[in-house]
Amino acid sequence: MSNYVFRMFGGSPMQPLQDHMAQVHLCASELVTFFEAVIGQDTARIQEAQASVVKFEHEADKLKKTLRLSLPKGMFLPVSRHDLLDMLTMQDNIANKSKDIAGLMLGRKMVLPESIAPLFLTYVKRSIDAVAQADTAINELDELVETGFRGREVKVVEKMIKTLNQIESDTDEIQIQIRSVMFKIETDLPPIDAMFIYRIIEWVGELADLAQRVGSRLQLMLAK
């Protein structure tokens, strides 16, 4: 015997989505330790930090799979199921990108030129700020359900998304500065190394881009 009225209530996907984002944030944050180690050229610490990134990415993956399985068709949600699954993919891409950055830099034993090192660290930190801000905004999802996606709470979240966009444009500016410094010193570097540094610059920028897109998706959910 079971209770039908009670069985109507499916598990809300909001908390799992928040948990996933928290895990992604944890994964991306590990990049700060990783870059500090790279700049300090501390091989043991580099490996350790890369292993952490990989571990956290795996855990985020597990959360992603559980959430996907718990969202079968026929669930009536306060937001579109499509938007929700898209959001999950974008969040997960942040963790994937973090893993790629750490993996590539470890694999190629990359060294950052001293002239860009401090700026690069600022750049990484600012990108992770964007991820952190996306995490903060996503964390409001259960409050949004409580308020029925309207009123004050919507304004709070919209403000958070605005801040997120601001942080993302900060990273764009830092990227321009790093690129201009790189342009001056690139001829002194082994060409292939320079090429890969450019690729890492791009990828770190993508972290902030992805975080911003998570924010945009959230904004779409508010507007439904």
């Binding site: 109507m8 909001m14 669930m75 009536f76 306060p78 937001v79 359900v145 409580e146 439904k224």
Partner: peptide, 29 residues
């Protein structure tokens, strides 16, 4: 009573107030 309560729950769901409702169970009811 059960159907009426289901109607009430759906009303709150339509106001975007519930995290997830299992429509399959509702159809069965």
């Amino acid at each position: 009573t059960t159907h009426t309560l289901v109607g009430g729950v759906l009303g709150v769901g339509l106001a975007r107030g519930i995290g997830a409702l299992n429509l399959r169970i509702i159809r069965t009811i």
